[in-house]
């Protein structure tokens, strides 16, 4: 990491939202840029996976690029802003599995709700799902808004495989006989 990157990271760390002051220096070093970091925070809120787990897929940049390319100008930032405006502690509550009133502000919003659900599918399945005709008529459309697997890497990094306690079909092989093993979390 260059000195300039470090400096920017520290500055970004200063903008970081509350609740994480216990390790400000580490956070500062890990941050790439503020917008990406906010996207990861939003994604953690939507998917139930932690920021480290999400970043560990290596797909953050690809997904943010995909959203920027497919969605009408400004929509991604609107979503990021809506997430930032959620009541303090909303993330923690979502991670604890409680129904968060704050979530409804995004998920029930006619403009941002469908986009947020698509962000969830992006992370879990590695796919982009075309928005509805009604959404496109109301908020704008793009020729790139077509259902597809985003890339081979996205397919392999999709969270659904981890959620299943498995591995992406056709990749990250587990080795001979691994399929005989008792799954995690099963006793006996």
């Amino acid at each position: 990491m260059s000195r300039a990157d470090q400096t920017r990271g520290q500055l970004d760390g200063g903008h970081h939202r509350g609740g994480r002051s216990a390790a400000p220096v580490l956070d500062a070093v890990s941050v790439r840029d503020e917008r990406t970091d906010r996207f990861v925070e939003l994604s953690a809120f939507l998917t139930g996976y932690g920021r480290v787990e999400l970043t560990g897929t290596g797909l953050t940049g690809l997904y943010l690029q995909t959203l920027d390319a497919v969605l009408p100008a400004g929509v991604v930032d609107e979503l990021l802003d809506a997430h930032r405006r959620l009541p303090a502690g909303a993330n923690g509550a979502a991670n604890a599995g409680r129904d968060v009133a704050g979530g409804a502000l995004i998920l029930d919003d006619p403009k941002l709700g469908p986009v947020a659900r698509n962000v969830i599918l992006l992370w879990y399945c590695g796919t982009w799902t075309a928005l509805s005709e009604a959404w496109r008529a109301a908020y704008g459309s793009s020729p790139l808004d077509a259902s597809r697997v985003v890339s081979a890497e996205a397919y392999q990094g999709a969270l659904q495989w981890a959620a299943a306690g498995a591995h992406p079909a056709g990749a990250r092989q587990q080795g001979f006989g691994a399929w005989s093993l008792t799954p995690e979390g099963v006793s006996g």
Binding site: D99, G103, R117, C125, Q160
Partner: peptide, 21 residues
């Protein structure tokens, strides 16, 4: 698993930790 995810997200409206769980 794609359709199971889609049903949970768009059908049941799950997100966050409840979706993952």
């Amino acid at each position: 698993p794609d359709t199971t995810v889609a049903a949970a997200v768009t059908g049941q409206g799950l997100f966050g930790a409840s979706l993952r769980g």
